[in-house]
Amino acid sequence: MPRFMGFVRMEEGGGMPPKALFEAMDNYIAEQAGAGHFLDGGGLFGTEDAVNFVVRKGEVTRVDGPYAEAKEVVGGWALLQYDTLEDAISGQQEFAELHAKYWPECEMVATLRQVSEEPPQPSDA
């Protein structure tokens, strides 16, 4: 059964979601978990304590948050499992619609990506 990652990107510092969204999300996640679609997930803390390791020209540099240049950050994630891509897309749309309904002033992007089940193939570069 294909697995997918769902990501939520939004502007950092946009405030806390309303209680109604938390309640709707609790119900939605319980329903999705009960159906075997929601495997794991959660919210992420802000970038104030984030650490990036940047690889550039064969060197690694550590960059600690917060990141002034960041407009949007990943605020949450979910590991999902659906029978088909179409079912996964429908589930992610329903998730996004909960935000539109219960937190209409929020601007966010809900991204869905399929998890590769095959190891990457090395390039000859």
Rank of each mutant, 00 (worst) to 15 (best):
P2K: 05
P2Q: 06
R3D: 04
M5Q: 05
M5Y: 13
V8I: 12
M10R: 14
M10E: 12
E11K: 13
E11P: 00
E12M: 04
E12P: 01
E12V: 03
G13W: 11
G13H: 05
G14C: 10
M16E: 14
P17A: 15
K19D: 11
K19N: 13
A20E: 09
F22Y: 13
E23F: 06
A24L: 07
D26Y: 00
N27G: 10
I29S: 01
A30G: 08
A30C: 05
E31S: 08
Q32S: 08
A33E: 03
A33P: 00
G34H: 00
G34D: 01
A35E: 01
A35K: 02
G36E: 01
G36A: 03
G36Y: 02
F38D: 00
G41M: 03
G43R: 05
L44S: 01
E48A: 08
A50K: 12
A50V: 11
A50Q: 12
V51M: 15
N52S: 14
F53G: 11
V54D: 02
V55P: 01
R56D: 07
K57S: 15
K57L: 12
K57H: 15
V60Q: 09
R62S: 04
R62E: 05
G65M: 11
P66G: 11
E69D: 07
A70K: 14
A70F: 13
V74H: 03
G75C: 12
G76D: 05
G76H: 04
G76Q: 02
W77L: 08
W77D: 00
A78D: 02
A78Q: 09
L80W: 04
Y82M: 01
D83K: 12
D83Y: 06
T84G: 09
L85H: 11
L85T: 09
A88W: 03
A88G: 04
I89E: 15
I89W: 08
S90Y: 06
S90C: 07
E94N: 09
F95Y: 15
A96D: 07
A96H: 10
L98T: 08
L98V: 12
L98P: 03
H99N: 10
H99A: 15
A100Y: 10
A100R: 14
K101R: 14
Y102K: 05
Y102H: 15
Y102C: 08
W103L: 11
W103K: 10
W103M: 09
C106I: 10
E107K: 15
E107D: 07
M108V: 03
A110N: 12
T111E: 14
L112S: 06
L112I: 02
L112E: 03
R113N: 03
Q114N: 02
V115L: 07
E117C: 03
E117D: 15
E117Q: 09
E118Y: 08
E118C: 06
E118R: 10
P119D: 07
P120D: 06
Q121M: 12
P122R: 11
S123A: 06
D124F: 06
D124S: 12
A125E: 05
A125H: 10
A125S: 07
